[in-house]
Design a protein around this nucleic acid. Structure first.
Lengths: 233, 233
DNA sequence: CAGATGCTTCGATGGAGATCGAACCATGAA
DNA sequence: TTCATGGTTCGATCTCCATCGAAGCATCTG
């Protein structure tokens, strides 16, 4: 029973509603200040401060002091992935009676998962990439790598593959999507694709949520790039 | 902030030490009775009963009534995978000061992860399978599938691939190993390989823990099957 | 400098829930 | 049937911790 790492510690951290709200708010990958997070969680600054301290100590968050502000982010991609997995459990079991909020359909369609794209559209893109043989299994930490043809494809988009290779971070990684219950692409390449989509003006992130909107042009461009798996409008 | 599924609910479930111990005890995939679990967690039967009820309600456990006994298991592979992910966070951050117990080296070497093999050895096997091109990316739920050559290899072992295909469960799946921080093979095939190794007498499971021992013959046979990635004795 | 804003620490309060004893139900054995 | 064992329900207790008010420190602005 005493085997393995202490799961209860982090479980308890995530288990408080205020802290869970803070974590969810950070799932869009942006850095937020302590007061913003307090407002997000519906608590006062004092309590937020205590929560944030605990989560830093527990390794869930990182902080970045800038002037008199203190910015908080998730401590890393693994944290985001684990939270997404927990959401998967929460969505499926037990709390199926979660009444779906107004934003819910938009979230299911496209959202940010820490630093990459998730939701229906992200799953379709992953499907398309794998169906075309651009991804293959690997012994890397991510478990996936780009095939030669996949490398060509990504380079042809104008994404700087060399920079991605230089980074220590695993480039390709499968991340389980809580709404679709299938995989989407995470890792350095997943993050790079999201920023690239943004730069093209194909997708826009809603300021203070995980929701991602797709422009009309983005829709047609993405359809062109990933044809087979795209919804017929 | 109110977006998405309710993470705090399950977080709180996992966050109690007694419940965390119960979940860890079930990570070996076996079904245990309520009293066994109570002993495992160091609590009385009454409290265990209340905990078990909550976890069933929360979708983390399944129960199976047999005679006057009630057997409990993890509700499914996703639950095991999520717990393993949480262990990854716990092992890395914050609680690095977890003094490693006596069983710890054995656990890191080989253990059961719900229904498949994990630990150093499992990672090496996964490495070997992927290096030989037996696994490729797929749009399946698991994110992986067997390549043709991989199918031949598995069939040559005597594993019934048809039965695995017939099952609704995804056959191949990458599961992140908390001790190695790399992937090992889960899914139906991962489970089938573990039972097959057991049947051959190559590995045996310690009765009431996740620890898996490798017999001398198993070591040499496994070395023969997965040569490149194996430790040189 | 003074004033304002962001954030933390301290202390007190209150509520949720983990725990166990005791009684109770269900199943199997004699 | 009677007894024993596995499991649950109920009620009372008690500990932990989330919360906020007040005060304090740090940083920026004027």
């Amino acid at each position: 029973m005493k085997d393995g790492p202490d799961i209860a510690r982090i479980g308890a951290l995530i288990g408080d509603p205020a802290r869970a709200n803070i974590l969810s708010a950070l799932m869009n990958g942006k850095a937020l200040t302590a007061t913003e997070l307090a407002a997000e969680a519906g608590i006062t600054g004092q309590t937020a401060s205590s929560h944030l301290k605990k989560m830093i100590e527990g390794g869930l968050l990182s902080q970045n002091k800038q002037g008199r502000h203190r910015y908080f982010t998730l401590a890393g991609p693994e944290v985001g992935a684990t939270l997404e997995a927990l959401m998967g459990l929460a969505a499926r079991k037990g709390h199926l009676r979660t009444r779906t909020g107004p934003k819910d359909p938009a979230l299911r369609n496209a959202r940010v998962c820490y630093d990459h794209l998730a939701g229906d559209i992200a799953v379709r893109i992953f499907d398309n990439l794998s169906a075309r043989g651009f991804l293959e299994a690997s012994s890397d930490k991510g478990g996936l790598r780009l095939s030669p043809s996949g490398s060509d494809f990504v380079s042809s988009l104008g994404i700087d593959l060399a920079a991605l290779h230089a980074s220590r971070r695993p480039m390709c990684r499968a991340c389980l999507d809580w709404s679709e219950r299938r995989n989407h692409l995470a890792g350095g390449l997943g993050a790079a694709m999201l920023t690239w989509f943004e730069k093209q003006g194909w997708v826009m992130r809603e300021p203070d949520s995980r929701v991602v909107h797709i422009s009309a042009r983005g829709r047609s461009e993405l359809f062109g790039l990933f044809p087979a798996a795209w919804p017929q409008k």
